[in-house]
Amino acid sequence: MSIWRAEWPWYVATFVIAERTDGLPKSYALSTYLIRAIGAEEAYLQAEALARTLGDSFRDGKGTVVRHECLGLADLDTLQEDEMKHGTHLLWTKWPSTEIPAMRTRNELSLFLPPVPPNAI
């Protein structure tokens, strides 16, 4: 029996985030979240609700105000797994260039960067 892609219980929502830092040009990021839903329409509604919560402002390590604003969904797709476990494949992103994406050393990975100061605005 085959299952249609929108019938899986897990979805991956990728949002476009605008980052504004005082004195610097606006930049953009993709931010990806896991959503559990019963069907594609519910996943979409949950993603839309989540998008409204993704704006944030904080001070970086230099005390400069950084603002994040969610501009909307870049993609919403099913994660074709019934349960989450070690090694579960989450996302495949087609690189929009023929250049090899930058790879990072251990200390450049987000997990190992210094924490953001807790003095959020």
Results as ranks from 00 to 15, higher is better:
residue 7 E to K: 05
residue 8 W to G: 01
residue 8 W to M: 01
residue 9 P to V: 08
residue 12 V to C: 06
residue 13 A to S: 03
residue 15 F to E: 09
residue 16 V to R: 15
residue 18 A to N: 10
residue 19 E to Y: 02
residue 20 R to L: 10
residue 21 T to W: 11
residue 21 T to R: 15
residue 26 K to V: 14
residue 28 Y to M: 10
residue 28 Y to I: 03
residue 28 Y to A: 11
residue 29 A to H: 15
residue 32 T to H: 03
residue 34 L to C: 06
residue 35 I to S: 07
residue 35 I to L: 13
residue 36 R to I: 01
residue 37 A to P: 03
residue 37 A to S: 04
residue 37 A to C: 05
residue 38 I to W: 00
residue 43 A to W: 07
residue 44 Y to A: 09
residue 46 Q to L: 11
residue 47 A to M: 06
residue 48 E to P: 02
residue 48 E to V: 09
residue 50 L to G: 07
residue 50 L to K: 06
residue 53 T to L: 09
residue 55 G to R: 09
residue 56 D to L: 13
residue 57 S to T: 15
residue 57 S to Q: 13
residue 60 D to V: 01
residue 61 G to W: 12
residue 61 G to L: 15
residue 64 T to F: 05
residue 65 V to A: 12
residue 65 V to R: 14
residue 67 R to C: 11
residue 70 C to E: 12
residue 72 G to M: 07
residue 72 G to Q: 10
residue 72 G to N: 08
residue 73 L to Y: 11
residue 76 L to D: 06
residue 76 L to M: 03
residue 77 D to Q: 14
residue 80 Q to N: 03
residue 81 E to G: 01
residue 83 E to Y: 14
residue 85 K to P: 00
residue 86 H to M: 10
residue 86 H to Q: 12
residue 90 L to C: 08
residue 91 L to D: 10
residue 92 W to I: 06
residue 92 W to Q: 06
residue 94 K to Y: 00
residue 96 P to I: 00
residue 96 P to Y: 00
residue 104 R to W: 08
residue 104 R to H: 13
residue 104 R to Q: 12
residue 105 T to C: 02
residue 107 N to L: 03
residue 107 N to K: 14
residue 109 L to V: 04
